[in-house]
Amino acid sequence: MDKAKEQTHRITVCTDCRHTGAPCRPGFDLLKRLQAAIAQAGTVLSEDFSLQGSVCMAGCERPCTVAFQATAKATYLFGDIKGEADISALVSFAQLYRDRPDGLTRKGERQRALGGKTLARIPAAIVAVERLPALLQ
């Protein structure tokens, strides 16, 4: 099976600034550091996650922004990520996120370095669609 097909989780880093219309150097640096840290964390983690850069993720007031996504799991968007200082917290979050069937985590379970940096937690769309008939009754 193709490695890209096996990866069920995605980490996306904002690497393009809509304000300047140019690449975001801190975002690219963060992406490279995070790729190296995920690879160093072990084969299982690096096989489960794809990492990529993205156009503006509208977290401009709190750069750098990083999103964690997976099918049928909540999506997380973090901001104010400070390069090397937050890398280990992001790797720890990746492990926690991967191990949760719904992706949901509580504030107290996340690394302290991510405290106050959660910009959004978006419930999985599939959960909302599955529950819709029950909610309409």
Score class of each variant (00 low, 15 high):
residue 91 V to D: 02
residue 24 C to W: 13
residue 43 T to Y: 02
residue 74 A to D: 07
residue 104 L to S: 07
residue 134 A to S: 11
residue 76 Y to L: 06
residue 57 M to V: 04
residue 68 F to I: 12
residue 18 R to H: 11
residue 12 T to L: 10
residue 103 G to K: 08
residue 103 G to H: 13
residue 51 L to T: 01
residue 71 T to E: 08
residue 93 F to Q: 03
residue 70 A to H: 03
residue 36 A to Y: 08
residue 83 G to T: 02
residue 68 F to R: 06
residue 108 G to F: 10
residue 108 G to I: 10
residue 7 Q to N: 11
residue 56 C to S: 11
residue 122 I to W: 00
residue 84 E to I: 05
residue 114 L to F: 03
residue 90 L to A: 02
residue 119 L to T: 13
residue 111 Q to C: 11
residue 116 G to R: 02
residue 123 P to S: 09
residue 68 F to A: 00
residue 32 K to Y: 13
residue 76 Y to Q: 07
residue 124 A to H: 08
residue 50 S to G: 03
residue 93 F to D: 02
residue 6 E to C: 09
residue 65 T to Y: 01
residue 79 G to W: 00
residue 49 F to Y: 15
residue 21 G to F: 07
residue 2 D to I: 13
residue 22 A to L: 10
residue 14 C to M: 09
residue 98 R to T: 04
residue 116 G to T: 04
residue 53 G to N: 05
residue 103 G to S: 05
residue 67 A to K: 03
residue 103 G to M: 00
residue 137 Q to H: 15
residue 85 A to I: 06
residue 100 R to E: 08
residue 33 R to V: 06
residue 37 A to H: 00
residue 81 I to Q: 00
residue 70 A to V: 11
residue 15 T to P: 05
residue 84 E to F: 01
residue 75 T to Y: 08
residue 32 K to F: 05
residue 108 G to R: 11
residue 48 D to F: 02
residue 64 C to N: 06
residue 15 T to F: 00
residue 69 Q to S: 04
residue 88 S to T: 15
residue 103 G to P: 11
residue 17 C to D: 15
residue 24 C to A: 13
residue 1 M to G: 15
residue 17 C to R: 05
residue 9 H to V: 13
residue 2 D to K: 15
residue 22 A to D: 14
residue 129 V to Y: 09
residue 3 K to Q: 08
residue 49 F to E: 01
residue 121 R to S: 15
residue 106 R to G: 11
residue 11 I to E: 07
residue 14 C to S: 11
residue 47 E to T: 12
residue 54 S to A: 12
residue 43 T to W: 12
residue 125 A to R: 09
residue 71 T to Q: 04
residue 32 K to W: 06
residue 65 T to M: 03
residue 68 F to P: 08
residue 132 L to K: 09
residue 73 K to N: 08
residue 11 I to V: 09
residue 118 T to I: 15
residue 102 D to Q: 12
residue 27 G to N: 06
residue 47 E to M: 08
residue 94 A to Y: 11
residue 114 L to A: 01
residue 23 P to C: 12
residue 15 T to Q: 10
residue 125 A to V: 10
residue 85 A to W: 00
residue 123 P to L: 00
residue 76 Y to D: 01
residue 117 K to V: 04
residue 102 D to N: 08
residue 108 G to K: 14
residue 127 V to K: 06
residue 129 V to P: 01
residue 82 K to F: 07
residue 89 A to E: 06
residue 100 R to M: 06
residue 92 S to D: 11
residue 27 G to C: 05
residue 106 R to M: 14
residue 7 Q to L: 09
residue 69 Q to D: 08
residue 9 H to K: 13
residue 72 A to P: 05
residue 6 E to M: 14
residue 32 K to S: 13
residue 77 L to D: 03
residue 120 A to L: 06
residue 118 T to M: 09
residue 90 L to I: 09
